[in-house]
Write a protein that binds this DNA or RNA. Structure first.
Length: 589
RNA sequence: GGGGCUGUAGUUCAGUUGGUUAGAACGCCGGUCUGUCAAGCCGGAGGUCGCGGGUUCAAGUCCCGUCAGCCCCGCCA
């Protein structure tokens, strides 16, 4: 996968995995880790590994290499390369046709017995892997993921450079922006009581760089959000951050497609076809129940309220009276054991739905369902039609939004569990476009930005901006891969009047706007080019490319769900002196 | 903040209805062995059953609390 340059140093003449038949008869100096020792009394076989691979080293009893060796010690070995005797080749390894006859061995650092072995055949618990991450990172899969990640970054950089983008760094110690996620705060020692914030993204800096005239900016950059963790969310994560001037959506979208195509070709040697399909936000919600559809799954959500319009089921009738919906989805020609269906029902409940109805259908008839007694012949027929008379239909009666949300999650879960993916695409990209600009926030009783407050509304919706804000569509786009959002961006507002108008709709006071964004609004007054950009989530992208469903697997030193680093034990207490210097006192509970 | 799952040897796990001295595999240690590569063969050591409390004649097992890890909701693009 990765061709290392010849790893020659003062300690070694080349890497262990770099020895080939060309070296037969030559003396080599090697240094690495002892992965395994097979002691046959008169002869010892040692697998010596370094980052380039492994090589078998032979020690004979009379060789005088008497120093005691243990597995995973680092050693330096000098010896001669020879072809393996016939019949003893090992086709499983790259260097399996050759071996090194050791002339000398020097232990560089003796290893104690590691808590687990990098060659362990069974998966070790993640807790232990994270505590001894240096051992874990010696495992082949982790090496592949980390080097794979390097290759993704490298291929993206190459393409961005080629496309005329300038790589520019932006500050990590910056200003808190309470809109959106919670900030990580950094206390200022020089100005007691004041705080920097770590950036949630370099959003305003990259826009400022457009006003500065750089026209094409990118950066592979760490971002920070102090929110709860998930399998696909870490408090610090990496974005491929891109911004361009004098562009429309089309420019950003096609650039992103070219970059992703290049990365998949270079790293996985996979041709992804561009342009990617696009779906409007409203259509995605309607058909898939989510704004990040997994188009590998051939299952769609349907509004089947009509079928139940005269239902004998009380909870459905009441729900429909409250203008709720019955949404369903069907899977044709499938059998799921009843116990599994019951599990799915409790899963649906844990996702917030009141319940889940399922109908097992054979030969155009429902043969099993928890509500079968309350289904009349007409309903039976209509429901059976949904899966062409054979399969399973699921239905949720609830508030429309919740029914969609839970349906979408169940579809995703079932598809994964039962491997219901289309076979023609391993990587299914889709653009989701025409997001709403605002959504109504019940708890704050005001509109909030769906993307962020610098997103430009669609020009044709400007006239309803103040009269009908929830109908306004944004010039925003998300890129979704296999049902995961791997990036999103927008065309930005490039004039201060419109920007101010948006802030007013968001019910930010003039004072607040001035205090937080005054500097930015000022910048917009001095010749801002039309501009826009995108940010790609590198961790998620790499995870999907390498088939990992957890981004911790592609991050060398990730945090646990409670935000701890099990390797270093961060976060931790600090000395009182440090707090005093910052003017901070910890509240006693 | 909430729901679910998990925690037993270095590691991965088993442990019956609460009942004798808590088991297995791999790893480790000692021995043996000149062609192995998941080496083989013989022998051996290794346990705060996450932690605290309770119920009981008796707790790995039941109850309460707590800590840690994972998945999810809320939160978060």
């Amino acid at each position: 996968m990765f061709d290392f340059a010849e790893l020659k140093t003062s300690y070694k003449s080349k890497g262990c995995g770099q020895i080939t038949a060309d070296d037969i008869g030559k003396s080599v100096k090697l240094a690495g880790w002892i992965e395994s020792i097979r002691d046959h009394g008169g002869v010892k076989f040692i697998d010596l590994v370094d980052i380039t691979g492994e090589i078998q080293v032979i020690f004979r009893a009379d060789d005088g290499a008497t120093e005691e060796i243990t597995e995973w010690s680092t050693v330096q070995i000098e010896g001669e390369v020879r072809r393996r005797p016939e019949g003893t080749e090992n086709p499983k390894i790259k260097t399996g046709n050759v071996e090194v006859i050791a002339k000398s061995l020097k232990v560089l650092s003796k290893s104690e017995l590691p808590p687990f072995l990098p060659t362990e055949r069974k998966e070790v618990s993640e807790e232990i892997r994270l505590k001894y991450r240096y051992i874990d990172l010696r495992r082949e899969k982790m090496r592949r993921n980390i080097i794979g990640r390097h290759l993704v970054s490298k291929s993206i950089r190459e393409k961005m450079w080629e496309e005329g983008f300038v790589e520019i760094e932006t500050p990590y110690l910056t200003k808190s922006t309470p809109e959106g996620a919670r900030d990580f705060l950094v206390p200022s020692r020089l100005q007691l009581g004041k705080f920097y914030a770590l950036p949630q993204s370099p959003q305003l800096f990259k826009q400022i760089l457009q006003i500065s005239g750089f026209e094409r900016y990118f950066q592979i950059v760490r971002c920070f959000r102090d929110e709860d963790l998930r399998a696909d969310r870490q408090p610090e994560f990496t974005q491929v951050d891109i911004e361009m001037s004098f562009v429309t959506e089309e420019d950003i979208i096609s650039l992103t497609e070219r970059v992703l195509k290049h990365a998949f070709k270079k790293v996985l040697d996979i041709e992804v076809s561009i342009p990617f399909p696009r779906i409007k936000y409203s259509e995605s919600i309607r058909r898939y129940g989510t704004d990040k559809p997994d188009t590998r799954i051939p299952i769609e959500v349907k509004d089947i309220s009509e079928i139940f319009s005269n239902s004998k089921l009380d909870f459905i009738r009441k729900n429909l009276e409250r203008r709720g919906k019955v949404l369903g989805f069907s899977i044709r020609d499938i059998e799921i054991p009843k116990s599994k269906l019951v599990n799915l029902e409790s899963l649906a409940k844990s996702m917030g739905a009141g319940g889940l109805m399922w109908f097992v259908i054979k030969q155009n008839k429902i043969i099993s369902s928890p509500v079968i007694k309350h289904i009349d012949d007409k309903e039976n027929l209509e429901i059976s039609k949904l899966c062409d008379g054979n399969g399973i239909v699921f239905a949720i009666s609830d508030r429309e939004e919740r029914a969609r949300d839970v349906s979408a999650k169940l579809i995703k879960y079932i598809a994964k569990e039962m491997n219901l993916y289309r076979s023609d695409t391993k990587f299914a990209f889709v653009w989701v476009v025409e997001f709403p600009l605002f959504s109504w926030d019940e708890t704050e009783n005001r509109y909030v930005s769906e993307h962020h407050p610098f997103t430009s509304p669609k020009e044709e919706d400007l006239e309803i901006l103040e009269t009908n804000p929830e109908k306004v569509r944004a010039r925003a786009y998300d890129i979704v891969l296999n049902g995961e959002e791997i990036g999103g961006g927008s065309i930005r507002i490039h004039n201060s009047e419109l920007q101010n108008k948006i802030f007013r709709i968001l019910k930010l006071s003039d004072w607040e706007v001035q205090e937080r964004f005054g500097w930015f609004l000022e910048a917009l007054k001095y010749g801002a080019p039309p501009h826009g950009g995108i940010a790609l989530g590198l961790d998620r992208l790499v995870a999907i490319m390498f088939g990992e469903d957890n981004i911790r697997e592609v991050i060398p030193f990730p945090k646990t769900q409670s935000g701890s680093c099990l390797l270093t034990n961060a976060p931790s207490d600090v000395y009182k002196k440090q707090l005093d210097e910052l003017g901070i006192k910890i509240k006693e509970e």
